[in-house]
Design a protein around this nucleic acid. Sequence first.
DNA 1: CGCTTAATTGATGTTAATCAAGAGGCGTGG
DNA 2: CCACGCCTCTTGATTAACATCAATTAAGCG
Lengths: 229, 229
Amino acid sequence: MRKTCETCVVRDRALCSALSPDQLAVLSSLGTQRHLKRGETLVRAGDETIVCANLQTGVMKIAATTSDGEAAIVGLLYPGDFIGRPFAGSAGHDIVALTDVMLCSFSRVRFEEALRDHQQMESLLLQRTMAELDRAREWLVKMGRANAGARVAGFLDDLTRRLDMLGCTGPQALELPLSRGEIAELLGLTIETVSRQFTRMRVAGAIELPGGRRIIVRDAQMLKAMAAA
Amino acid sequence: MRKTCETCVVRDRALCSALSPDQLAVLSSLGTQRHLKRGETLVRAGDETIVCANLQTGVMKIAATTSDGEAAIVGLLYPGDFIGRPFAGSAGHDIVALTDVMLCSFSRVRFEEALRDHQQMESLLLQRTMAELDRAREWLVKMGRANAGARVAGFLDDLTRRLDMLGCTGPQALELPLSRGEIAELLGLTIETVSRQFTRMRVAGAIELPGGRRIIVRDAQMLKAMAAA
DNA sequence: CGCTTAATTGATGTTAATCAAGAGGCGTGG
DNA sequence: CCACGCCTCTTGATTAACATCAATTAAGCG
């Protein structure tokens, strides 16, 4: 199926970056490459966790359903991010593709064995999970205290910084992986409020909206300032 | 200093529960017991992380300072919880005692060695960190969408369940480890709003407020219902 | 007992949700 | 190619919730 991990697009970003070429060769035989179309679900909350995976291309969402049946997005996954809960019983959230995605998938049991065999990979996963926890807590502060404008600006700032790190630099038009409704679900706002804030930022000159889901960041500095307000 | 880990109050709840008596004896010699008074700071955000620790008694807060200088609480720590960021450069948050606390402290480097030597402990830490991440994401949903009443009720429900697990059961008066102001910082509300919600819950018959920081939960079921709204 | 800080209660203002309608894309079929 | 329906996004008017401002009461503490 896959030729080799050596040429993987996330070779130096994913968990496997902790492994030597020899170790990688072993792991390689355990994983399979999978493709998901936008909207397809990889993991459903409550399912016994079967899969662990590395996201290679595309963006996914980590979603929960509130007690009153509304959808909420609690996190996003970008290329290089790890998906799954080794050693855990059941999944706490849905994992759904926001764009077409490519991922490198393992059976949970196999992946747990791999973690045991390669402790440096387990350490890296621990560090990443702690970093993810810190990021979730940053958002916790934003969600608790920031007004609508700061939330939307902060989301855009986060998104662009994250995509920049992946090499998609430049002030060219970028296709948002989320609809207005999904942004609302992520930020705990309504579609209308998100839309109004986009308009406000466009009028202020921070961004352009060439139509559809495309967006151009004109003034990243102003965006940061709006996110801090 | 300390006699033995065998009799530790959190022997079967802390990370060390992953260790055999023999292994514990080794770790025991590396740790020292520390006492902090209410209000004292164990870790300051930005500090190079020096210590790792297990909380034995008392409650601590994980606090951040927002860009506009306001304090925000992003999490609470209870007996048995682990404190620290092994393998990480610097601390992301302040760790402060809300009550007098007792903890079992290690130098970071020593603790990292211990994790390497006892992989089952590292695995347990990984699982706990992932569980903590899930809990943070639950709060993320609450903070984003729930109204003031649900936030305060949810906080009380969480707190009582957490303390119940530690053996402090019963409908007797419990001393809140947080002031109204700290609850406000945790929930992203103002002191006034928190106070009003407490009054509402008292009038509704869910709780009693015998004065000071004491509180009696009269109707845990009603509390849960209020938290879901 | 008096001082200081924390908590409660009340009156008013602001922000974002809600309700409602219109505009822009996009695919389908005539 | 245009007409139509469907969906997403945008914009406007109204309402409800919480913050803010202000005052009072209660609790800790020397």
